[in-house]
Design a protein around this nucleic acid. Structure first.
Length: 441
RNA sequence: GGGGUGGUAGUUAAGUCGGUUAUAACGCCGGCCUGUCACGUCGGAGGUCGCGGGUUCGAGUCCCGUCCGCCCCGCCA
């Protein structure tokens, strides 16, 4: 191994350095910080996997001084890995030879590090391209990746096939006018609010399917739990006996997600996250019973209302914590008036449905349920909802030619992360959030 | 769409009853410091107080208008 000459040393990633004790290695990354103590200085080098302390004397820092290289400059360092109990992680790079690959000479718009915790959300989002480099911000991204990996792993193990459905579609998938319209070669089209209709069609093909992908909502809401574009973790499965088969898969999927997150415990610790325990059976509450509980506790008149208000969901979240020791609560049997046309009514009480919401720490995280699968019933439901059949011809074709009893659910990824990590705003769980007033960076 | 609230240095905030040169912390720059890991310490630079108009001897502060953001509700994951 030679530092100079025809042989180029292999680049070592920060996460591999602990296996290189005693070796002279080459590392590359960003200058996170220099702590100067006079004759000795500690250079913190960050790469895509973590960070590494480089211990340098004044002479070794000369290239940085010459280039006037400030925070976020891109560096290459060749040095020897030395075990040292005084170094973070128990090792450091000594006798370094530092080369400045890209010198950054202006201060960051939002300094990384401890100041970040106090910055306003807007400043963080405006400067996401650099702010995301902060270890706490990128940990959120990494945990999101882990959650998606757990979701996929669990479903694949249960015989589900991952699909990708179109995001440019003819008609609104959920009904309602809150869709983004776009020009499709001169014809009107919209961005998909949900893969709902397509994943149902695919139940007729593969029985069990799932999708990880973006959905688009043009609702003019402005709250800490809404985005105009978010990632939906969608599941749909055929040949169910009833809604509880769907809830069972949801529970198992949550276990898989939590397990995958648990494998990233350093990231969880960095963010102070507490993983929820998924109970052996998710606590369930009927919609009307939930309303009665809220009414009894708060004195507000809520029985008879078609939906639960966010404040009531928060109360129910605390109720689940108190009574069941659970961060999760399944609310079943929502009124049919507030559910989309494809929702299966409850045969025992037709004003209610075989559908459910999953509350996670008091926030609506999942919606799911059993769907209508008989063609005639579906057409009747569409007629009642005032949905024209013509744009839905493809959807209806699947049902005309035999669909089994089926159901599914969708998890909002950013909401999961926001509640998991106690983020004040769902926007903080997104790389580049889109909302009513933000379409940049 | 309705309601509430805010805009002061790169970032976060203070600024009293309208009164002299608009403060502080972090960040940035410079000095000192050989085991830091929120390093410490001394000094320095950095401002169209969102914008426009008005009241006043005098406006960050009061009034009117305007722009932009944030939070809540409706709706939703």
């Amino acid at each position: 191994m030679r530092v100079r000459g025809a042989l180029v040393m292999q680049r070592i990633r920060s996460c591999e350095v602990s296996q290189q004790i005693g070796n002279t290695i080459r590392v590359q990354g960003w200058l996170a910080q220099i702590r100067r103590l006079g004759g000795i200085a500690f250079v913190v080098l960050r790469d895509g996997w973590g960070s590494l302390q480089v211990t340098a004397d004044a002479a070794a820092l000369a290239p940085i001084e010459r280039a006037n290289a400030g925070p976020e400059s891109v560096l290459e360092v060749v040095g020897q890995v030395q075990a040292n109990a005084r170094a973070p992680g128990g090792f450091e790079l000594v006798t370094p030879r530092i080369e400045v690959l890209v010198a950054v000479t202006e201060p960051l718009p939002v300094p990384l590090g401890r100041a970040l915790a106090k910055a306003k959300p807007n400043a963080l989002l405006d400067h996401a391209p650099t702010v995301l480099r902060d270890p706490t911000r990128r940990a959120i991204v990494q945990l999101g990746a882990a959650a998606m990996a757990g979701f996929r792993r669990g479903l694949v193990a249960r015989g589900f096939t991952e699909i990708q459905t179109p995001k440019i579609i003819r008609a609104a998938s959920e009904g309602g006018a809150n869709v983004f319209a776009l020009d499709y070669f001169g014809s009107p089209a919209t961005l998909a609010q949900s893969p709902q209709l397509y994943k149902q069609i695919m139940v007729g093909v593969l029985e069990r399917v799932f999708e990880v992908g973006p959905v688009f909502r043009a609702e003019p809401h402005a709250t800490v739990r809404h985005l105009s574009e978010y990632v939906s973790l969608d599941v749909e499965m055929g040949f169910i006996e009833g809604m509880h088969d769907v809830i069972a898969v949801l529970r198992e999927t949550l276990v898989e997600i939590v397990d995958a997150l648990a494998e990233r415990s350093p990231l969880l610790e960095l963010l102070g996250a507490e993983l929820p325990v998924v109970p052996a059976r998710l606590p369930e509450l009927d919609f009307v019973a939930a309303q009665e509980l809220v009414e009894l506790a708060t004195g507000e008149r809520v029985v008879g209302e078609p939906d639960l208000a966010p404040a009531h969901e928060a109360w129910l979240g605390e109720h689940a914590r108190r009574e069941h020791g659970s961060d999760f609560l399944v609310v079943t049997g929502y009124p049919i008036a507030k559910r989309p046309f494809y929702t299966h009514p409850d045969p025992a009480r037709t004003a209610h449905t075989l559908s459910f919401d999953l509350l996670f720490r008091g926030t609506e995280l999942v919606t799911g349920g059993q769907r209508l699968h008989r063609y005639d019933e579906l057409v009747a439901a569409m007629t009642r909802a005032g949905i024209p059949a013509e744009p839905m011809a493809g959807y209806l074709e699947a049902f005309r030619f035999g669909m089994p009893p089926h159901g599914g659910f969708a998890i909002g990824l950013e909401r999961l992360l926001a509640r998991l990590l106690h983020l004040p705003n769902v926007r903080m769980a997104t790389l580049f959030p889109r909302d009513r007033t933000r379409c940049f960076p």
